[in-house]
């Protein structure tokens, strides 16, 4: 049964359709990712599902509850992690969790027990009496996720769980989310990191301008929307303009992605190798390429 069901959701900010007829379903126990660049409508979707943002039309059902009519009931059973950590600087680590649990309806005794449990789960037990500003960025993020688990939710909604984190912290968050999934918790997350989506998600919806462009498991997305391999040209000693001139002369079409020339697949390998001052590489296509092929733009575009 679908744990989260979104149907024909529309939300406008003035004349802009931030969400433009969005429909998808997340199965119970599934980890589902919304992947897209900034401005694609990810955060708005997350906020709508959490009851933090009104919509113009559409339907949302979460855990069998009409989420647009009764958002407070949804938040009794679904943990919400917003994009900002939103930690309370006036309280210490433990108090942040206890107050949250109390507001969610737990008795103080149960809130204290859950606090110990989630701090243990996140390896933060030794920091329980610390002030928030004594924590690293990664710890703050993990505490924000821990907070959402205070209610022992059946589903969590995570808006960009690792944006701005260092690689080590990202890996820890990934590990912890994988453990949550193993416990059967349904996870809906947004991200603009394709590696994050590929690592964690059972299925990914590629979102752009408030619409879903494609929705499949990560490998199927790559199979369907790329040609498997991608040939790239890295500039070593040549100038970018001379490489452009040579590619044009050889009749090879390309797209510049950052400092790399991503070549059209029909490029003749011999012709490519003959371009001086460059190094050519063939790699497996990834979700970044899926997005590029679907939209003609990069995932990192603002």
């Amino acid at each position: 049964m679908a744990e989260i069901r979104v149907e024909k959701l529309v939300k406008r900010f003035g004349t802009v359709r931030a969400i433009d007829g969005l429909s998808f379903e997340v199965a119970s126990g599934e980890t589902f990712g919304l992947l897209g660049p900034n401005g694609a409508g990810k955060t708005t979707t997350m906020r709508v599902l959490s009851g933090l943002s009104p919509v113009d039309s559409g339907e949302v059902s979460i855990a069998g509850i009409d989420a647009l009519r009764d958002p407070r009931a949804v938040r009794c059973v679904v943990g919400v992690v917003t994009q900002q950590d939103g930690l309370d600087d006036d309280l210490n680590v433990r108090q942040n969790l206890e107050v949250f649990g109390f507001l969610a309806g737990l008795s103080l005794r149960v809130a204290r027990r859950h606090t110990r449990e989630v701090l243990d789960f996140f390896g933060l037990a030794s920091r329980s009496e610390d002030a928030i500003d004594e924590l690293s960025g990664g710890m703050k993020r993990r505490l924000a996720i821990a907070r959402a688990l205070m209610i022992q939710p059946r589903a969590v909604i995570l808006d960009e769980p690792t944006t701005g984190l260092d690689p080590h912290s990202r890996n820890r968050v990934w590990e912890e989310l994988a453990q949550l999934k193993a416990r059967g918790v349904t996870i809906l997350m947004s991200t603009h990191y394709m590696d994050e989506a590929a690592t964690l998600c059972d299925r990914i919806a590629i979102l752009d301008r408030g619409r879903i462009l494609a929705l499949d498991p990560p490998l199927e997305l790559i199979e369907k929307h790329t040609r498997g391999d991608v040939q790239e040209l890295r500039v070593t000693t040549a100038s970018h303009s001379s490489v452009r001139a040579e590619l044009e002369r050889a009749g090879i079409r390309w797209r510049e992605v950052g400092a790399v020339f991503r070549l059209n697949r029909e490029a003749d390998p011999a012709a490519v190798r003959s371009i001086a001052g460059t190094r050519s590489e063939v790699r497996r296509a990834n979700l970044e390429d899926v997005f590029l092929n679907l939209t003609g733009r990069e995932l990192r575009d603002e």
């Binding site: 917003t82 309370d88 507001l103």
Partner: peptide, 9 residues
Amino acid sequence: SVETLLTTP
């Protein structure tokens, strides 16, 4: 942190 309070019921 007020937004966080609103993620409770």
